[in-house]
Design a protein around this nucleic acid. Structure first.
Lengths: 374, 374
DNA sequence: CCCGCATCTGACAACGTTGTCCAGGCTCTA
DNA sequence: TAGAGCCTGGACAACGTTGTCAGATGCGGG
């Protein structure tokens, strides 16, 4: 997957990391880069060209392009004509090099295709836009190494700031960047081993409430299907589940929890085992949207009615029979809050790293209110 | 309005923002950034610094960083130590300026939060990654002006290529860019007034099949709820609806079609009118995923059973009662195909613009097979 | 008529990197 | 031991832009 030969610009940066292959990459990429064209940028006109055509100095063009004062309307007109005639477009790379700010921020998340991250990403984008910045984003696919790769590639491009939904649990590699002034906010999960701004959902509280809700409806044998406890959110939700059970004086049987299983087939099997073991569960608490969807499918095939509460809301959850009770977190607010803090870091308003925890909301729709059916 | 000069106004918009922060930041950030230093990039070390510390020449550092041959292991070691000690990270802006390629591509779509675009975006990202490029993306919010703004901002950053899901219908503003060698592929909707690569779904065929399917199940009064015909996909789907009706010799009543209404409340009203007019429909064909979801809600409140086929697949569609029959298009394949063509343009394999149409797939789940209930 | 001032314009350096080219030192051979 | 050839390392220019500063121009007042 991480085919070194095919990835050249970014991977060069990784050379310290994988020294073995590093050397071999370079010659092979020649074929690609060099076949492209003989002239850089396909020979785009520069300010110099515009200046020559308009018969003015370089700096005058710059002034026109940037709307600076001190240019006669007549001169400005000539310059604009030249710009249009040549199809000139300012080269922001050079501008960045000169000015030191890129007006772009990076967003690293797990998977852009996940319906949880779409709205989050969009919210970040909107804030970026309001601050005149573009958004570069990348998916880590829950792989710490890939996360680091992406983050460092973004830093090499000198993004002004980073919004990171971390996959790994050690972010000391970011220390030089933080020192260098790259604004950074972690979202959804905290940073590992460094001091940084964090915006989280109240995963523990949400999970505890969800399970307490099931207990309040008479359940005692409650299953939990969650992700790897290595992931902070998964660990917190597990903790919430355990806390609620303990609060109610219920001992949790080993067979009731499934951790770290995520692909649909295996989630399916895990759920079925809970439902058919010697002490079968009467309710299930699912740890994220994907798991919830799979478990809904499993339950739909069962005749026995099993209660369900899921973490994360799901589209159409209200239209299923029964409606799916969930603990909803607000992805858009999560993203917006993080991005706003990022820009406040950048304009110097925000000084000390904080940990912000947003509340979750239990939405009852039926599936979580079913009575136990033994 | 959309002349060449406006692009600079776009950047000018950014500049005031930039300047406001840029200028004022410096003093204010003292506490955070200046704890470390006072200059640009928070005084990041450059190759020069590394060279000085390692006691070698500038170019030698460059060689080490880029894995070029011609450096003794011992020298290389010294350089790497200096790099680590200083926390040096190559400045890709300068690199880009020098080399002329950014190894990044831009993706402009309607709304990242839409479940249709998430997978598409992710697919583009994966292809970009395989080719060593990063992805910058922006949402046009279905606004042609904003689309142009975004596209031109991306061009100013000298992205190597663009994947565009257009909102507007006139893309002549892209001509200078195309000439300058910016690889461009349009997705989901064709480019307007320029000759460019396009990857589309078979919207017309899919819609016609969907409506024919309803007709085959005995329906004659079939409603269509779609988006503004200004949007190519919406127009094509409308055309498909009309073609199927005409093929069956059915005259379409005005009251049966709703176009350009998208927000849930008004879609709801539109659907209810179709269902309660003098000649109420017995089936509805919905033109995109958001509309489908809303109409499902409306139908769920009705006692009379109304058939439904939706364009675009929906998560959990199989678990509803009845399951939702849809015409599915494969967003990921759409994105992947487009991105692959983009990189083939870049490496010179692909020379002439083409129009590629991907088939859609009718997935029957129950709602489209209901008999008419008058 | 000239000076001072304000307004407009342009030459030049700098941003951090990479490509070119040359210098110096080494090894190997005659 | 001298000369050829190779290998390593460094000086320098260039990429396209912006900030600085000084020069040119025009105008009004003394």
């Amino acid at each position: 997957m991480l085919d070194a030969t095919s990835s050249y610009e970014i991977m060069d940066q990784r050379i310290p990391v994988d020294d073995r292959t590093g050397r071999r990459i370079v010659p092979e990429t020649h074929s690609r880069a060099d076949r492209l064209s003989t002239t850089r940028y396909g020979n785009r006109p520069t300010m110099k060209d515009v200046a020559a055509r308009a018969g003015v100095g370089l700096k005058t063009v710059s002034r026109v392009v940037n709307g600076e004062a001190g240019v006669t309307p007549e001169t400005e007109h000539r310059v604009r004509e030249a710009i249009e005639a040549l199809g000139f477009r300012r080269n922001d790379s050079a501008r960045v090099l000169r000015k030191g700010r890129t007006a772009s921020i990076g967003l690293v998340l797990e998977d852009l295709a996940d319906p949880f991250y779409g709205p989050l990403s969009r919210a970040v984008e909107e804030v970026a836009r309001a601050n005149g910045a573009l958004l570069i984003n990348g998916s880590s696919a829950e792989d710490p190494e890939r996360e680091q790769e992406l983050v460092l590639a973004l830093c090499a491009r000198r993004v002004d700031g980073l919004v990171v939904i971390p996959a790994g649990d050690d972010h000391r590699y970011l220390e030089p960047e933080l020192k260098a002034g790259v604004a950074t906010v972690f979202v959804d999960r905290p940073a590992g081993r460094i001091d940084a701004d964090v915006v989280l959902s109240d995963n523990f509280g949400g999970a505890r409430d969800a399970v307490a809700h099931l207990i309040a409806h008479g359940h005692r044998r409650i299953g939990f299907v969650g992700d790897m406890p290595r992931i902070h959110t998964a660990a917190e939700r597990l903790r919430g589940y355990r806390a609620a059970m303990e609060d109610a004086g219920i001992e949790v049987a080993d067979a009731w929890t499934s951790l770290g299983v995520t692909d649909p087939q295996r989630v399916r099997r895990a759920a079925e085992e809970m439902l058919s073991g010697p002490s079968p569960v009467t309710a299930i608490f699912t740890g994220n949207n994907r798991v919830t969807v799979t478990v809904i499918r499993v339950l739909a095939e069962h005749t026995r009615r099993v209660a369900l509460v899921g973490f994360d809301d799901i589209e159409l959850a209200d239209l299923l029979q029964p409606g799916v009770t969930v603990v909803a977190q607000d992805a858009a607010t999560l993203g917006r809050t993080a991005a706003e803090r990022l820009f406040r870091q950048l304009d110097g308003t925000l000084l000390t790293p904080e940990r912000i925890e947003l509340p979750t909301r239990l939405i009852t729709r039926g599936s979580g209110e079913l009575a136990p059916a033994d």
